[in-house]
Amino acid sequence: MDWTSVQLRSLVELRRRGTVTAVAAALGYTAGAISQQLAVLERTAGVPLLRRVGRRVELTDAGLAFAGHAQRILDIEAEATAALERSAGRVAGEVQMAVFATAAAEILPVLLARAGQRHPGLVVRSRELVVDDVYGAVASGVVDLAVGLEYPDVPIRRDPSLRVVPLHRERFSLAVPTGLLATGGPVSLAGTGPPLGWILPPEDTHYGLAIRTVCRRAGIEPELRHEVVDTAVSLALVEAGIGISTVTSLMLRLRPSRFDVHPLTEVFERDIVAVLRSSAEQRPNVAAVVQVLRELQLEPVGRQPGQEPGRVGQVLDVGDTGT
């Protein structure tokens, strides 16, 4: 039978995600294009793979069985790609990579420069994704690897097909409008009641759930004033005196801002991680990019409450003095 990787991946993702719309978002196509790919695959297979249930489609028993085989075909294809790369004897070719917004601004330029110097034949193609979507993008094969985030308080559900490589751990501080708090030292989340309204992402995001988990452990329920997913917008609102939020050194570097940053007495951390499929570990091209990521050191350069704003951090290579 004659089918394409896109058709097989669409079928596998429909089993994983449940709707054509979700599959389209994960693979970077329109819903109409995914429906067309599935229709062609169904004609090629010669048996019904889909059935309509109301306004949705779901997999038939044959479709579910075929999706399992399709995943194995895609895995074999990935192994063949790795074998070809190894046979070349050098790092050359393309790697598809996903990054989230802050990583795109601060990590990606340094990564691309270092990778290009070390491996002139390597081409890294990147795409920016919502941070909570990078795991699915790697699992589905849309990208070869990604830079993502993990919160120790709410770990990502482990997919046995994925490998998560820790790169750097950041600790959160509290960002408050200038002069709002009399103390210049550490503060407790337990003291952030009214009128200190919060600027937070939705609770159904990993970050949103993580900060609420830490607050609840401290005995408070954060009073949400503004629900925001964009870090730069959150920083702008804090600077304008609208509310408070939690920040890391990397987040602060996204936008020069004028507000106070107080260490938290509670431990609230996140890990910047590289995410790749376990089968991709044997690909020289992917391994080369992961190695460069591991060598990048995120050096926090903090700012005390009331201090003039500026660049509050930089990506430093191992061995840099920071001067």
Rank of each mutant, 00 (worst) to 15 (best):
E42P: 06
E85G: 01
E79V: 06
A67D: 02
G32F: 08
A33M: 06
L64V: 15
A62S: 05
A45L: 04
G63F: 08
V40N: 09
G28A: 05
L84R: 13
Q37G: 00
T60M: 12
V57P: 00
A78F: 04
Y29A: 10
G32W: 07
S35D: 05
G46R: 03
T81C: 03
G63R: 02
P48W: 04
G63V: 07
E58Y: 00
D75K: 06
A31V: 02
G54K: 13
G89M: 04
G46W: 09
A83G: 02
L64P: 00
R51M: 02
I73P: 00
V57A: 07
E42Q: 15
L74V: 10
T81H: 10
A45T: 04
I76M: 11
T30K: 12
G32L: 12
E42C: 03
Y29E: 13
V47S: 12
Y29V: 12
A24C: 14
E79C: 07
A45G: 01
R72Q: 15
L50W: 01
T21L: 13
A88H: 07
G28M: 10
G46L: 13
F66V: 05
V53K: 06
L41P: 09
A62G: 01
G28W: 08
L49D: 03
E58G: 03
A80W: 03
V53D: 12
G46M: 09
V53Q: 11
G89Y: 05
I34D: 09
I76E: 15
I73Y: 11
A88S: 06
E79L: 14
V53S: 14
A88D: 06
A70F: 11
A22H: 11
A25T: 06
A24K: 03
A82K: 04
R51I: 01
T21F: 10
R55S: 14
S35V: 05
A62W: 00
V53N: 11
A80R: 13
T81I: 05
R86G: 01
R52P: 04
A70E: 05
T44S: 15
E77I: 01
R56V: 00
V57S: 09
T19N: 08
T44W: 00
E42Y: 00
S87T: 02
T30W: 08
A80N: 10
G28R: 06
G63Q: 03
R52K: 15
A80I: 05
G18H: 09
Q36G: 01
R51G: 04
A33K: 12
Y29C: 11
G68T: 14
V53M: 03
V20W: 09
E85I: 00
A67P: 11
I34T: 15
G54T: 07
